[in-house]
């Protein structure tokens, strides 16, 4: 299992969304993308769902963390 880490803080919309979607292209079944965010990416979720990914968003601390994985059958 591999983790691709992205620091998307300090980027203008929609660059965080583009970086995450680009990283997902090479994601194996057990891999995950962990992205540091400035804010919750509400508009990314429908696209993740459409491409067959699931996600968790942790917005408790100042640095928000989004974790994305492939949906497993």
């Amino acid at each position: 299992m591999a983790t691709i880490q992205l620091d998307n803080r300090g980027l203008q919309p929609p660059e965080p969304m583009v970086r995450i979607l680009a990283a997902l292209g090479s994601l194996a079944a057990d891999d995950e993308v962990v992205a540091l965010m400035d804010r919750e990416p509400h508009l990314l979720y429908p696209e993740l769902e459409r491409r067959g990914f699931t996600w968790e968003f942790d917005g408790r601390d100042e640095a928000f963390v989004l974790t994305v994985r492939r949906v497993t059958a």
């Binding site: 929609p14 969304m17 583009v18 979607l21 680009a22 990283a23 292209g25 508009l43 696209e47 459409r50």
Partner: peptide, 18 residues
Amino acid sequence: VWYHRYRQLAGIRPVPVV
């Protein structure tokens, strides 16, 4: 405009920025 025209292409092929 970006969201409706280019989000489905993002990560698959080059897309413009805002």
